[in-house]
């Protein structure tokens, strides 16, 4: 909404001072510059999405999704890559979801009693959120692949991603928990319900939209990630038979096709389109959940 802008009364041209004319001119210029900037941002967005749609859609087919890549991906499909991507995602969420939800519970519910721990956790998560993904890749390689001996595997990749998505997951979950009215907590306490049951039966259900937003954003970040996976989950484009197999994620497949495979561009377009649609779908889902949820809250209070 345009804020603080009560419509000013029109001044007739006859009485307009040079100063006011200058102000009008300045106002118009700034408005035009702001408009141009916004048009540029929107234009680039449409250019990227439009280009991928125009070239990528003719390449897409059902076969592309269910076939194995042939000739380093120049033809065939991306089925094993989708399987690996899902496996990496499952490992990532399997670890980060319980850990992140619990940490968010501590941050929101015990902020008054565990002041020091909460402060330390919050600080380190803020810094962790800023750590570049390639540094997570280095860490994952040194820690999971070498020190823990997991090698280039889906497990290493998924665990590395879990470290990476924790800050996003925790922030959204905490916000969801904080928006639960304290009446709920007081009422549960007055009924003599244990804290554990309060969390399971009252807080988590009430904060569900926040949890879902966090989950969706976390999935989005994990699926989009490439740099952290190059030296943790590896390049192998076969269907993995165990979590200790190397598996190539969809994002890495796009990178490989466009940089290392001559003539891989058409399939790279198609893969990029699949990834983009997946992510834009996830993001719009998260945005509409949080919008609807926020407006509902405002009506209630």
């Amino acid at each position: 909404m345009a804020r603080g802008m009560v419509q000013t009364s029109g001044v007739s041209p006859m009485t307009r001072q040079p100063r006011q004319r200058h102000a009008r001119w300045l106002d118009g210029t700034v408005r035009a510059v702001v408009g141009l900037c916004v048009a540029a941002v929107v234009g680039v967005f449409c250019w990227i999405v439009g280009d991928l749609l125009l070239v990528g859609v003719p390449e897409l087919s059902w076969g592309f999704l269910v076939e194995a890549p042939i000739d380093s991906g120049r033809s065939g499909g991306i089925a094993p890559i989708l399987v690996s991507t899902l496996a990496i995602l499952a490992v990532c969420l399997g670890v980060s979801l319980p850990l992140g939800t619990s940490a968010a519970l501590l941050l929101s519910e015990l902020a008054a009693t565990d002041v020091r721990l909460v402060r330390v956790v919050r600080r380190s998560l803020d810094v962790l959120a800023g750590v570049p993904s390639i540094v997570f890749g280095l860490f994952g390689n040194a820690f999971f692949c070498v020190a823990l001996g997991l090698g280039f595997s889906i497990l290493s990749g998924g665990l590395t991603l879990a470290c990476m998505v924790l800050p996003i997951l925790i922030r959204a979950t905490e916000e969801g928990l904080r928006s639960v009215p304290s009446d709920y907590r007081h009422a549960a306490a007055a009924l003599g319900i244990t804290r554990t049951r309060t969390i399971w039966k009252v807080l988590l259900p009430a904060a569900l939209p926040g949890l879902v937003v966090g989950l969706v954003l976390g999935i989005g970040r994990a699926v989009a990630e490439t740099a952290a996976l190059i030296f943790t989950s590896g390049y192998v484009a076969r269907i993995p038979t165990s979590l200790l197999d190397s598996g190539r994620s969809l994002s890495l497949h796009i990178y490989d096709l466009s940089m290392n495979v001559a003539g891989g561009e058409p399939k790279a377009y198609a893969s990029a389109l699949v990834l983009l649609m997946l992510l834009l779908g996830l993001i719009s889902m998260a945005l509409s959940i949080s919008d609807r949820w926020l407006s509902r809250r405002m009506v209630h209070t």
């Binding site: 990227i48 280009d51 989005g220 994002s251 890495l252 466009s258 990029a272 983009l276 834009l280 993001i283």
Partner: peptide
């Protein structure tokens, strides 16, 4: 919001 969701590898490819 959608622009922030485009993965870096897709930006790179474009």
């Amino acid at each position: 919001g959608l622009l922030s969701g485009i993965p870096s590898v897709v930006y790179g490819f474009w």
